[in-house]
Nucleic acid binder design. Structure first.
Lengths: 221, 221
DNA sequence: CCTCTTGTTGTACGATCGTTCAACAACGGA
DNA sequence: TCCGTTGTTGAACGATCGTACAACAAGAGG
């Protein structure tokens, strides 16, 4: 008998690394990028920090992504689509009435995993890159419309049901509600204590209520 | 006669540098820091980029500031106080009625020099640093209250005049208006074309109007 | 004209950055 | 069992980072 079995039992206990399918590894690297952003902010976006977070060598990133900026853009794309997917799921889980759907959307906006200081800080860092990164700009244009369509669709249904003849400017209404949501997120990111999640939902619902009320008025005038 | 006059005329034409008072130089370095932020975003915050922008050698920054982070924090402080000073001046330039003062504040929010894509992008980059920089956090706490006090003061006067007995939650009202303002700024920073300045003012005034109307209702109920 | 103070310069240093690439090794298929 | 593919490693490169510091010189005061 050879000594191979013994040898093998020694060598097979610890493979030095595990090969993965490219798509799996890409997702892992994207997850590590977002985790580094949460932990260290913009300074966490270095190849060495990210590869350490992913438990991987420095060279691997450039094997799956052409360069660092593309990895960051891919992370932003993932972050965006996760958000929209979460909102969509929450809305479809809700009762079919427009009001209930909007409420589900707002409650998803002001609860885990979205209303988290670290998560919100990641958004702010991405937004800060927007102005000077064409890749981030492209991802924004490609994914943000999903969010806008979801929100405008809900507002349309709601106004159609409540006041079919209303002359509310839907574009401005959506802009205002988006701004209110983003602004409250920003405040929560900077100082989480200033308002409670339920108050955030209430502020947004008041905005929509006043929208419907205004629809009344302009329809009657 | 000596050759001095000729020599002097040659040597005095170009002093290799001009000495300045520490406070003047500090302000110049702060201005250069903000300019670099506008031009290059977060990547513009390097000692060499800033010193080049200020027309100064690399070593000078550490002669006037203990380190890079302190310079950035000083720039954030300056940026904040300039904003508050601009708003305060605009409000005091307006007629004395609470409505006119609020309108002046809103119009200052949606016009130069504040409603500029580069300027707004600078805010976003600073906000992105907040979570992981104690210095930025300190400056925020020290300067932001000036902004909040100005805004809450105006809201208080307005509600007091319109409905003295109202039971509106002033804290929540200020939070909502601040969020609306910040959110609209953020949208303008990302996509300046989505709404016109006058529409931004109108959205905020509608918010305040509804606030007063709600004050009515809750006072009558 | 000389001296002293000190604002300013620019090199130098060590650390870290993004990227490259030759060598390695995991593991499915023959 | 061995081979071939290829996911993975880690050293190495040049560039750039923040900071320190010795040398310089501008400008005021005597």
């Amino acid at each position: 008998m050879s000594v191979r079995p013994a040898e093998k039992s020694l060598t097979t206990t610890k493979p030095r690394f595990v090969r993965q399918l490219p798509e799996q590894r890409r997702q892992a690297l994207i997850a590590a990028t977002i985790e580094c952003l949460k932990r260290y902010g913009h300074d966490g976006l270095s190849i060495r920090t990210i590869s350490a977070q992913a438990g991987v060598s420095v060279g691997l990133i450039n094997h799956h992504f052409p360069n660092k900026d593309e990895l960051i853009a891919a992370a932003y794309r993932h972050f965006n689509s996760e958000l929209v997917a979460g909102f969509t799921a929450a809305v479809e889980r809700a009762p079919k009435s427009p009001r209930a759907r909007l409420r589900a959307f707002l409650e998803a906006s002001f609860s885990a995993p979205n209303l988290d200081q670290d998560v919100l800080a990641v958004w702010v860092v991405f937004w800060g890159m927007y102005r000077h990164s064409r890749l981030i700009q492209r991802v924004q244009r490609e994914t943000y419309q999903g969010y806008v369509q979801l929100l405008r669709g809900m507002l349309t249904d709601l106004l159609k049901e409540q006041r079919p003849q209303s002359r509310v400017d839907l574009r401005l209404a959506a802009i205002g509600l988006t701004a209110l949501l983003d602004g409250l997120w920003l405040q929560w990111c900077l100082e989480p204590g200033t308002f409670r999640p339920a108050e955030g939902v209430a502020l947004c619902e008041t905005w929509v209520d006043n929208l419907c009320r205004r629809a009344d008025r302009s329809a009657l005038e």
